[in-house]
Amino acid sequence: MRTFYGVELNNRLLLGTAQYPSPAILAEAVRAAGVEVVTVSLRRESAEQRDGQAFWRLIRELGVRVLPNTAGCHTVKEAVTTAQMAREVFDTPWIKLEVIGEDDSLQPDLFGLVEGAAILTAEGFQVFPYTTEDLVAAGRLLDAGCEVLMPWGAPIGSGLGLNNLYGLRSLRAHFPDVPLVVDAGIGLPSHAAAAMELGYDAVLLNTAVAKAGDPAAMAAAFAQAVAAGRKAFAADPMEPRDMAAPSTPVLGKAFLG
C-alpha cells in the first residue's frame, strides 16, 4: 500500500483552496467532494484586516489535513524560508515544494527543487515536490529524501489535462513503489480519471473546481471521477487492440442469409 508519508487517504482527490468566489463556496466544495487534504499558502498579514486569521478559522472548521505550498517562490532560499514559516503556522511537516523556474509555463526549476528538497528533508520536513515527469529528476528527488512525487499534468491553471501521457506512464512504471500525484493542469473530471487509470495515487487540482460555474458540483464530479479511475486501475483494464473482436459470441448464430 503506497501511503503519503504514512497517511492513508480514502479520498484521493486533493483540492486547492484558492480562487473560489467566496469562502462559503470553498467550504461547500470541500464538503461536496469529501476531500481529506487541501493545499494552503502563506502571505503577508495586515494587522488591521487579519484576513489570514479568518481563513485559518475556516480551514479548521472543515477539519481537513493541510498541505502548505511554497507557491510563487523562484529561489531555493525563498522556498526553504517559506517552508519553515509554513511548518510553524500550520503545525505540519508536510510541504508542497514549488520552485518556479520559468514564468510563462510556471515550470518547476528541477535543479532548485532537488536542492531545496534535500535541505528540507534534512530539517525533518516531509516534502511533496511539484515536479515534471522527468525520470532523472524523479530519481534525484527520491535520493534527496522525497517519499512522494507530484508531476504536473500540464502547466498550472491551464486546464489542458495530461500533456504527456507517455511521460506519466513511464514515470509510473519506473517507480512502482513511490506514491505519485498528478498535480496541476487538470481541467476536467475525465483528465483526473485518466490519471488514476494510469495508476497514479492521487490527483491535486484547484482552478478546475474554483473557476467552474458551480464549484461544489464540479468538486463532487471530480471526486467521483477520481474514485472511478482508481477502481478501474485496480480492476486491471483490458489491453487495447487495433482490430475488432466481436463481443457477442458467434457460435450458434442463426443462418439467415
Binding site: 483552496t17 470553498l26 499558502s41 487579519r50 485559518w56 514559516m85 503556522v89
Partner: peptide, 30 residues
C-alpha cells in the same frame, strides 16, 4: 532580512534600523 525567526526565538531577536521584517499568515493556495 529573509531568515525565518521561530516563535520561541522572537524575544531574543533584536531589530536594527533598516531591517526587513516579514509577518505572514495562512492564505488560500493551490
Amino acid at each position: 532580512n529573509g531568515d525565518f525567526i521561530a516563535r520561541n526565538l522572537r524575544e531574543r531577536t533584536r531589530l536594527n534600523d533598516g531591517d526587513r521584517v516579514e509577518v505572514i499568515a495562512p492564505m488560500q493556495g493551490g
